[in-house]
Simulated assay, not measured.
Amino acid sequence: MSFVKNKKNKKRRRFIFRITILLVLLAAVLFALISNFQKDKSVYGVGDKAPDFQLKQISKNNDTETIRLSDLQGKGVMLNFWATYCKPCEAEMPYMEKLYPKYKEKGVEIVAVSLDASELVIHRFIDKYDLTFPVVHDTKNQVMDLYKVGPIPSTFFIDQNGVIVEKVDGALTLDRLEGYLQQIQPK
């Protein structure tokens, strides 16, 4: 009888040990999942301070000027994420170019963040549309990731204090664009 009892005790201890291991593994998996979901997934939106960044500007004369968002403090900033292969992006570029001179004089800067892989493609696009506003190249999608940009075009309108006033996913019409530029015009 004691042999059967010993065997049952061993089975019971093995079962408890296995359940304990299983619970520890389950707790570790849950911890990993929860930690992953709580990582910095901040989505910057209306009312948030726009995160600073620095990117190289694409220019016609191949200067290596950089643009830092914090250097534009005191101005309204339209931060537009786009790519040459994006037809809605292409459609709104002439509107941006048309309004740029008028709003630049009023203290508003347009910064177009290209997500393209090649500078050559960006240069051709700038030449095709004769763009005069700053175009910067986000070569590693760092700024895109920082701003948690999904679909393109995506545009952030930032006031003179560096606060996001509006975020627009999708292409803008001329009228809508002008309305947003008026909102971020320094007082």
Rank of each mutant, 00 (worst) to 15 (best):
R12Y: 15
R13T: 10
F15C: 10
F15H: 10
F15R: 14
I16M: 15
I19R: 10
I19T: 13
T20I: 12
T20Y: 11
I21V: 15
L23D: 14
V24P: 09
V24S: 11
V24I: 15
L25N: 06
L25D: 08
L25M: 14
L26V: 14
L26Q: 13
A27M: 12
A28F: 14
A28S: 15
F31E: 08
F31W: 13
A32H: 10
L33P: 03
I34A: 12
S35P: 05
N36W: 13
N36K: 12
K39I: 11
K39A: 15
K41C: 05
V43R: 13
G45W: 10
V46R: 13
G47K: 14
D48S: 14
K49Y: 08
K49P: 08
K49N: 09
A50D: 13
L55N: 13
K56C: 10
Q57P: 08
S59E: 12
S59G: 11
N61Q: 09
D63V: 10
T64D: 10
I67N: 11
L69H: 06
S70P: 05
D71T: 08
L72V: 00
Q73E: 06
Q73S: 08
G74S: 01
K75I: 00
G76I: 00
V77H: 04
V77C: 04
V77F: 03
M78Q: 02
L79P: 11
N80Y: 04
W82I: 00
W82M: 02
A83Y: 05
A83K: 02
T84A: 04
Y85K: 01
C86R: 00
C86E: 00
P88H: 07
C89L: 00
C89D: 01
E90K: 05
E90G: 01
E92N: 07
M93S: 07
P94G: 02
P94M: 03
Y95N: 09
Y95F: 10
M96T: 03
L99G: 07
P101C: 01
P101L: 02
K102T: 06
K104I: 01
G107Q: 04
G107Y: 05
V108A: 05
V108G: 05
E109S: 04
E109L: 01
V111A: 08
A112R: 02
A112F: 03
S114E: 04
S114M: 03
S114T: 07
L115R: 02
L115Y: 01
D116R: 05
D116T: 00
D116S: 04
A117E: 07
A117W: 04
L120C: 00
L120K: 04
V121R: 08
V121Y: 05
H123D: 08
H123R: 05
R124I: 01
F125P: 06
F125V: 04
I126E: 07
I126M: 12
L131A: 10
T132C: 07
T132N: 13
